[in-house]
Structures are given as C-alpha cells and as structure tokens.
Design a protein around this nucleic acid. Structure first.
Length: 606
RNA sequence: GGUCCUGUAGUUCAAUGGAUAGAACAAGUGUUUCCUAAACACUAGAUCCGGGUUCGAUUCCCGGCGGGACUACCA
C-alpha cells in the first residue's frame, strides 16, 4: 500500500538506496542493512540536493569517513545517471541530482491531478474517528476548537492515505450536568428562550449552568458556615439533591423532565450546528449518549453476570482493576443511574455493530488517558476482541498564560467569539491594506472568513498535537510570518501571476523542454514539492497535522524567496517562463491540497 | 502518595541518533519607478542540571530540579 502512494519521491530515494547498497557491496564486499543507509535532504548551507550519511560504512571500509564518502561518491556518479556530482564534507556525502531529473519530475507532478492524495479504494479499510463530543450544558470553547480541528484534519489526512473514514460524534446529552442547567432554568429562567433573549441556544443553556453553579456554591458556603464540612456540604446542598432527583426522573422517563430536556437540547443543537458550520467540520454519524447508555447499562449487567464486575451492598456496580495495576472503577451508581464510562461501553458496542470498523480512533484530550486505559480493559473483560485495539488519540490541552481554562472562573475562550474576532481582524487588515477594493461585499466577506479562520486553524494545527499549547488572548493571533494567512497569501500571489499569464495568452499546460538551466532555488522548490506525498503519509502514520503545516510553511517560504529573486513573466526565455509558471502552479496546487488536509481554504486573491 | 506527560532564544513553535540546534513574533536596520510589501534581506538572541550508551545525544537510558494532567457515585 505504501510504496504505491508516491512513486515520484519514493523512486529517487529507493534508487539512491539501491545504488549506495551496490556501491558498498562492490567497494567493500559487504551487504549493508537497508536501514543503515540514511538519505536526507542536504542542509541549506551545503552544496547538493540529497545527502548520504557515511558513518555506518566506515567500519566496513576501514577508511576515514572522508575517504569512504569520496569512494562511494565516485562510484555513484559513474554508475547512476541521475547523480550529476558530489562533494564530501566530514562524514557526509552530498549528491547533486541532475537538472533533467528534476525537470522531468516536475513535469510528471504537474500532470498528476491528485498528486500526493490517495483516494480510498472500494475495499479500503475503515477507520472510525470520534471527535468533538460536546456536553450539551455549555457552548464550545477553545479546547473544543483544538479537538474539532484535529479530528477533522486527521480524518482528511487518513482519507488521503487511502482509508475509508467515518467521522463520528458522541453527544453527551444526558447526565447530571444537563440536569443542572435544566434545574437552574426551571428555577430562575422565567421562561427565557433563545428567541426571547436573542442568545444563541448553546450560550443560553450555558448561562444557566453557570447560574446553577453560583447558587450551588452559595448553598455550600451556607452549610459550611453552619458547621458542615466541605464534603458534606457538597453532597447535601438542596440544589444538588434536586439535580440528582431530576436525573433519576429523567432515567425513569418522567414526561415533564423529558420535555424540558428535549427543549433545551434542541436549543443547544441549533447553536452547535452554527458553530460547526462556521468551523467547517462535519460528521457522518452522530451518536447520542441518551441512546447508547442503556446498551451500556445492560453490558454492565452482563459483566456482572459474568463475574467480571461486582455489586456492592449499596447497589452500586464496580470493576476491580487492581489486577491491572489500576483502581476500582464505578460503572453504575447506587441509585442505578449510569456514568460516563457506562455509556462509552454501550457506544463502542453499538458502533462495532453498525460498521465494519478496522480501526477506532478517539480524539480526546490527554486528561482522559486514564479513562481510555480503563475503557479498553473493561471492553476486554466483556469479551470484545477489539477492546484492546481502540486508539486514544490523546492530544494536549490548550492553556492560557495563567494556566488551564476554568469555566467556573469565567476564563474560557469562547469558540464563537474567537472565530468572529479572527474574521473581523482579517477584514480590517484587508481594508487597511486596500487589497480588496475591487471586490464585491460578498467576496470580501468570503475572503475574511477564509483568512480569519485560516489564521486560527493554522495556529492550532501547526503545533504537535501531543503537546499542550499556550494561547494568549491578549495577543491576537498573527497574520504574518509562520501563519495561515502567509500561506494563503502565497497561494493568492501565485494565482494572480497565473491569471496574468493566461491573460497574455501564454500556454503553460505542459512542459516544452526538460533541457533547461535552472537555478538551485528552483531545483530546491521542485525537491520540496516531491516531498509532499511522503509528508502526507508520515502525517497519517503519526496522526500529526502539524507535519503538514510545517511542510507547507517551508514550501511557501522557499517560494516567496524565489518569487522575490526571480521574475516569471518578464523573463526573456519563453521556455523558462513556461517552466516557472508550471513550477508556480505546482506549488499553488500542493499548497491548496495541503491546506485542505488541515481544513483551511485558500483564496484566489487577498 | 501512585501513574502518566512535559522542560529548546524575551515569547510562541521546529529539529527519523547526524553537519554550525531551525523558524516566526517581539527589538533594531534596510528593500517598492519591478508578476500582490499579508513579502524579501540583514543584526542580536536558546537545548533545566548531573551522569550513562554511541564515531556522534535536543532526541535513547538513569538520577535530580521545575511545570502539568489523572488518580470522583463529574464529564
């Protein structure tokens, strides 16, 4: 599956590897292990395109690294027509690849409409990717943004690597949290609705979650002042008792509670839909906890019958995981209501019933590492052979300079607000620079959307997903430098040149000549382009959109230098003009594909 | 206490065990009769500490120190 993904780049590397293998065998009479042959891109400050590390061969050669490199280099130049020259510095053998090879390669890439992107075959394996997974008691915030962008991007990347992908979302629509919002609304809401308040539905419900917490805290304080311990107070405050009662009523299908629940959830979904739409994410299949938790409950009961789990005197059900080096885990509360883990068991089972899943991936923050460790063990204990194969794609938290975001302390960065802020800034910048003076209001809006969201998405996705990242709300996200807009700008610039070329009647549909003297900057650009397929593959294996982001940045940075130092349309040599147009168009095309893998659109002008 | 993650310029991020540790932002300085200056160029600035493995360690191992997460009848 892999070697077919990118014949172009794979060819060069495997050709060179083979040549080096032969060289070492011929010169020193030893068979080298293939993974000992390390070929890397030559560093900028040295002459050459690709570099062979010679240290692994010096033992066999019984010569100095320099001399070994020299001998291998001579062999390669004589025996491989693709290699035009070499030089040795310390233990590094730098190879020049012939210009003709690069030009032919560019020509091939230019013909390939889906360069670097593999379309899933009919019999491709199926990967289900869960992401987003919101609670219905509060609006989405910056942490969800990272989750959603990662989920969406990883789905795109896996598709580009030939997987069939089902994007799924488990909505945590039931439980004690939503009862808190419901109760607060009932007590303090005076019938407020999204329509009456003008508030987006998810924000309205979130408001009552906060109101609940405020009153709950006050009750706790009062109880403490009357001599209760904090723990006692938390458990016995009237509001929390009331919320628990409501949860029980909900699980018992109480008509009034269910009606309230449905109404408030419908507000939330309308709000979420807007947020998702603006963010550009979507799902193929949505599961609701309210529809899966009963399956989870019956699985827990089955587990109890299997003696995998046990029931305590108070009626609560537990799994003893001390044998696995973990603690005991609650699966059903004493009052019979279910917890997060219960429904996750049910959801997993239903998914495997619904789809022929080859790989199940959960995009969930690293704060839940323990949860997924436990989930895998529990499913295994229940006899599901796939239980241990679940992949928890564990990404780092988004932190503020002061530390973790806390909804109760009002330090969360709201997703809707942040996106709007980015879009507004993009529009203002465009206006200041006078870039879009000839555009219609609709075009201006569409570009502001692309650029503002591009800045946000790139900012999030360029960071290694496993690492936690810092977001400083006081410093707005940049539009210059290593940013989404910089990449988008490069694309727009190229498109502008291509439009001019077309207007002048220049044909650059295919390459006239591969016998051209091209500069090092240009060969380097071609070489960077050839690395795109390998980057997509690596991003898929590593589950890392950041690799795509960093690759694209390197490519456009290089292109901007080229753009600055060379002229395209004002060149005298027609063949060179055509070559540079093809080069530019290929860069634009890779940039567009790469950004699409990140869920970022690129504009034709900006 | 236990388990896990993490520590790179002032800041935000890079670097399959390979060359002189790369960028960007912020600071300072240049480039526009020339295809989009949201650009390009230049200057200054960093691997937490101590051992080990290796021809070679930011990377792997051990021990410190610092930061974080989890360890709920929350999700």
């Amino acid at each position: 599956m892999q070697s077919e993904i990118n014949p172009i780049q794979m060819n060069l590397e495997s050709i060179l590897t083979t040549s080096v293998f032969e060289a070492v065998k011929t010169l020193y009479s030893v068979d080298t292990e293939i993974n000992q042959i390390q070929i890397q891109k030559t560093k900028k400050e040295f002459e050459g395109d690709l570099t062979v590390v010679v240290f692994p061969f010096v033992k066999a050669a019984r010569k100095s690294p320099e001399q070994t490199g020299q001998e291998i280099g001579e062999y390669l130049v004589q025996n491989n027509p693709v290699i035009s020259a070499f030089n040795v510095i310390k233990g590094f053998l730098n190879l020049n690849i012939s210009k003709k090879y690069w030009l032919e390669t560019l020509s091939e890439i230019h013909e390939d409409a889906s360069f670097g992107i593999q379309n899933p075959a009919d019999d491709a394996k199926l990967m289900m990717i869960e992401y987003s997974s919101p609670n219905t008691n509060k609006p989405l915030h910056l942490g969800h943004i990272r989750n959603n962008l990662l989920g969406h991007s990883i789905a795109e990347i896996q598709k580009a690597n030939g997987w069939k992908v089902v994007k799924t979302n488990i909505v945590n629509d039931r439980g004690i949290h939503i009862c808190k919002s419901m109760l607060a609304w009932k007590l303090f809401g005076n019938g407020e609705t999204p329509e009456s308040s003008g508030l987006k539905g998810d924000h309205l419900v979130g408001k009552y979650y906060v109101i609940f917490d405020k009153h709950y805290k006050a009750e706790i304080q009062e109880l403490i002042s009357k001599g209760a311990t904090e723990e006692e107070a938390k458990k016995s405050a009237p509001l929390i008792l009331e919320a628990q009662k409501m949860l029980l009523a909900w699980e018992n299908n109480d008509a009034e509670v269910r009606q309230l629940w449905e109404m408030m959830n419908s507000w939330v979904y309308a709000g979420f839909d807007k947020t998702y739409e603006q963010m550009g994410v979507s799902f193929d299949k949505i599961y609701y906890e309210s529809e899966t938790y009963l399956e989870g409950k019956s699985e827990v009961e089955r587990g109890e019958a299997l003696k995998a789990f046990y029931r305590r005197d108070d009626g609560s059900v537990w799994a003893d995981l001390t044998g696995d080096g973990l603690d005991e885990k609650l699966l059903l509360r004493a009052d019979g209501t279910s917890v997060y883990m219960t429904q996750d068991i049910g959801t997993a089972k239903l998914r495997y019933n619904d789809y022929p899943i080859n790989k199940m991936v959960y995009v969930v923050g690293n704060e839940q590492n323990y949860h997924f460790q436990v989930l895998a063990i529990l499913l295994d204990k229940l006899g599901f052979e796939w239980g241990k194969n679940l992949v928890h794609f564990s990404y780092g938290m988004v932190e503020l300079p002061e530390g973790k975001m806390k909804s109760r302390e009002g330090t969360v960065v709201d997703a809707d607000d942040l996106m709007q802020e980015m879009i507004d800034t993009a529009r203002e910048t465009s206006e200041e620079l006078g870039k879009l003076d000839n555009c219609t209001p609709e075009e201006i809006q569409s570009i502001a959307l692309m650029v503002g969201l591009g800045a946000l998405k790139y900012f999030i996705l360029k960071v290694d997903p496993r690492k936690s990242m810092t977001f400083n709300p006081k410093e707005s996200i940049d539009f210059n430098g290593n940013t989404g807009p910089f990449i988008q700008y490069t694309h727009a610039r190229i498109k502008s040149v291509l439009r001019k070329a077309t207007a002048q009647g220049i044909d650059f549909s295919s390459m006239i000549s591969t016998n051209l003297e091209i500069s090092d900057k240009e060969t380097n650009l071609i070489q960077l382009i050839t690395q795109f397929p390998a980057t997509v593959r690596e991003a898929g294996e590593e589950f890392s959109p950041a690799l795509i982001a960093n690759y694209t940045y390197e490519l456009v940075k290089e292109y901007n230098q080229f753009y600055h130092d060379f002229s395209i349309l004002k060149e005298d040599n027609q063949a060179l003009i055509q070559f540079r147009l093809i080069l530019s168009e290929s860069v634009a095309s890779v940039v567009k594909s790469a950004m699409l893998l990140l869920g970022i659109d690129v504009p034709e002008r900006m």
